[in-house]
């Protein structure tokens, strides 16, 4: 019974931490666009927290490089379990057009485990929302795994 309520509450209240590893800001603008009245993410209980301690979903955009890979790792570690990582945009997925650069590590999944990949350059708001909703399914699985 309580388990059921908890699962429901979890699905209805995903708080997002958005981290930009060094993208061109195209994806970031689209992420912020989701909060605007047109898309109104808060309808789904989604809040952009800006603080790993409060987050459930880690939304990462941009190419990971040698400088920021530790930051990415640290933020990931500070998010309490259960948590889901969503990588956004071409750069977040693979390193994008920068992947051959000398300082680039590659996609987000080179550093932390990624659950959902959202392609696009930049990713469209609809795609981002879709990605987060997909992430929620993963979130539920992880949560039930954590309890059992």
């Amino acid at each position: 019974m309580f388990e059921k309520i908890l699962t429901k509450a979890r699905m209805l209240s995903p708080w997002v931490l958005h981290f930009d590893c060094g993208s061109c800001n195209g994806c970031d603008i689209e992420v912020l666009a989701c909060l605007t009245p047109v898309y109104d993410l808060e309808r789904f209980g989604i809040i952009n927290t800006g603080n790993p301690m409060h987050a459930d979903i880690f939304l990462v955009t941009g190419t990971v490089n040698h400088r920021n890979k530790q930051v990415l790792r640290n933020l990931y570690d500070q998010i309490p379990e259960p948590k889901v990582v969503v990588a956004l945009g071409a750069c977040g997925l693979t390193g994008g057009v920068f992947r051959e650069a000398y300082n680039v590590v590659g996609g987000v999944d080179k550093v932390i485990p990624v659950d959902v990949y959202v392609p696009g350059c930049p990713a469209k708001p609809e795609a981002i929302i879709d990605g987060v909703v997909l992430g929620l399914e993963k979130f539920r699985q992880k949560a039930s795994a954590m309890h059992s």
Partner: peptide
């Protein structure tokens, strides 16, 4: 509980 470093913009 898990002891976690204070938030320092991820560069702690």
């Amino acid at each position: 509980a898990r002891i976690c470093p204070p938030y320092l913009s991820g560069i702690h």
